[in-house]
Amino acid sequence: MHINKDNFTYIANAVKLSFTDKDEKQITKELNKMLEYIDTMKELDTSNVKPLTHVLPQTNVFREDEVICYDTSGQLNSEIDKIKVLRD
């Protein structure tokens, strides 16, 4: 079993999601099924293969160190009530 009660809780907390017991059971089942299928990746020999993230060969994409002002339009809601930020 890839996903059990322990790591489900760990993952859900890492991604800030909560589930009802019923949903947790359902999703665990579905994910484990999916992971069983994904595990078939092992069949392919990838020793000596480098991982690929960027499909294009371009490198060194930069911008010059110039300032451009953006008119902040008050789109953000930046107020938080009663944050207890220092606690876990």
Binding site: S78, I80, I83
Partner: peptide
């Protein structure tokens, strides 16, 4: 006010 604000 027991509020926290974010300055980006």
């Amino acid at each position: 006010k027991d509020k926290t604000y974010i300055d980006y």
